[in-house]
Simulated scan of single mutants.
Amino acid sequence: MLLLREERIRQGLSANQLAANVGIDRTTITHLEADTGRPTLWVLLKLAGGLDVRLGDIINQAD
């Protein structure tokens, strides 16, 4: 999910910082950014909340 990486970097967060903020493992973020993982809805909601973006906007951009 390149969009995830772009937003994380735009906000000046490391993968470790984002993982700690949302309560998920850093490797989950790494896998998602490398497009080697498939997130659950729960993970997507946690990441959207942690980045303060709407999940619908992320989905629309990815479409």
Rank of each mutant, 00 (worst) to 15 (best):
residue 1 M to A: 14
residue 1 M to C: 08
residue 1 M to G: 07
residue 1 M to F: 12
residue 3 L to H: 06
residue 4 L to Q: 09
residue 5 R to W: 04
residue 6 E to I: 12
residue 6 E to L: 11
residue 8 R to L: 02
residue 8 R to C: 03
residue 8 R to Y: 02
residue 9 I to F: 07
residue 9 I to G: 01
residue 9 I to Q: 10
residue 10 R to K: 15
residue 11 Q to H: 11
residue 12 G to N: 14
residue 12 G to H: 13
residue 12 G to D: 11
residue 13 L to V: 08
residue 14 S to L: 05
residue 17 Q to T: 10
residue 17 Q to C: 04
residue 20 A to K: 15
residue 20 A to M: 13
residue 21 N to P: 01
residue 21 N to T: 11
residue 21 N to L: 15
residue 21 N to M: 14
residue 22 V to E: 13
residue 24 I to T: 11
residue 24 I to Q: 08
residue 27 T to Q: 14
residue 28 T to M: 07
residue 29 I to D: 00
residue 30 T to S: 15
residue 30 T to R: 10
residue 31 H to V: 02
residue 31 H to W: 01
residue 34 A to S: 11
residue 34 A to V: 01
residue 35 D to A: 14
residue 35 D to W: 06
residue 37 G to I: 03
residue 38 R to A: 10
residue 39 P to Q: 08
residue 39 P to Y: 05
residue 40 T to F: 03
residue 42 W to T: 05
residue 42 W to E: 13
residue 44 L to P: 05
residue 44 L to M: 15
residue 44 L to F: 01
residue 44 L to H: 01
residue 47 L to Y: 02
residue 47 L to G: 00
residue 50 G to Y: 01
residue 51 L to W: 02
residue 52 D to E: 14
residue 52 D to I: 03
residue 54 R to H: 11
residue 54 R to L: 06
residue 54 R to W: 04
residue 54 R to S: 09
residue 56 G to C: 07
residue 57 D to T: 13
residue 58 I to V: 15
residue 58 I to K: 07
residue 59 I to C: 12
